[in-house]
Design a protein around this nucleic acid. Sequence first.
DNA 1: TATAAGCTTAGAGTTAACTCTAAGGTCAAC
DNA 2: GTTGACCTTAGAGTTAACTCTAAGCTTATA
Lengths: 151, 151
Amino acid sequence: MLKISELSKKTGLTAHTLRYYEKHGLINASNRSEAGYRFYTDSDVRRVQFVKTARNTGFSLEDIGQLLSIRVDKLSHSCQEVTDITRKKLDEVSAKLTELQSMQQTLQLLLESCCGGPENATHCSIMEALDAGLLLDREAASRTEQQGETK
Amino acid sequence: MLKISELSKKTGLTAHTLRYYEKHGLINASNRSEAGYRFYTDSDVRRVQFVKTARNTGFSLEDIGQLLSIRVDKLSHSCQEVTDITRKKLDEVSAKLTELQSMQQTLQLLLESCCGGPENATHCSIMEALDAGLLLDREAASRTEQQGETK
DNA sequence: TATAAGCTTAGAGTTAACTCTAAGGTCAAC
DNA sequence: GTTGACCTTAGAGTTAACTCTAAGCTTATA
């Protein structure tokens, strides 16, 4: 039976975060001392570690809530439910990745185009590119279109 | 001279967002009607488009504030200042990219490992992997270390 | 002239996941 | 018996970039 600071050390999550997770229904301390101190069982610890692993994998706390309800009653849930959550997250991550890759490419091009020296910025090619809106041909285009479509 | 809704149409930014940018010192309407309506000059429009392009490139509003102060007085600023801001942003984007790529890989492996079928989740390999904390060998490890180091 | 569309401001709400504070109770050690 | 470390709770603050609301003018149209 671990106290919250011991669980904190064991998991690398702060006591604050552990209480936050509890408040949001993700974890719990199976026992309390007479004074109200939380005491965590091995089972509690495993659940916290599950949450941490899922968090590190990119799942939101809401996702994790769903995964946890599957975890405690696996018989009533299917693999498909699990893959649905996972695929949805993968799609989100992939979309974000595409966006960031586009940004990365643009930023690299900008850096390559500029001398980066102590000269004044009168003819700075980065400033010129931003002024010209040249980047709109790439990432901005898709986002601008999406904005227009959702109106 | 454009009214705010006209500028909104022209830029794809909402009037709300334009006022928000103004409140945060990024843009301004050079003129106002007697009734207080904002009127934007061509120069104002170009500045707004600069902000939009920079935003699409990944710069934060704070970054853009710096870029704008360079933009209005290029003689007093160097290319290096511009590349510093750009490189810092590129580093951020690259770091985030690495993290997301790791997540993507993990999520893909999880999906490949699971049947995803209507079977109950008793032996779901995704649940097992999250339970085992297997992913900690990859991305979580670096983040856990960072957390430990910054303590 | 009445209606609707559009403009103004100040300020509150949203989102996610913490992060921190205040006020106070508990516990082990010296 | 008094420090000091640790625990409790409720609730406020943080971050970024919007997004929306309310209450009230202004303007164009029919």
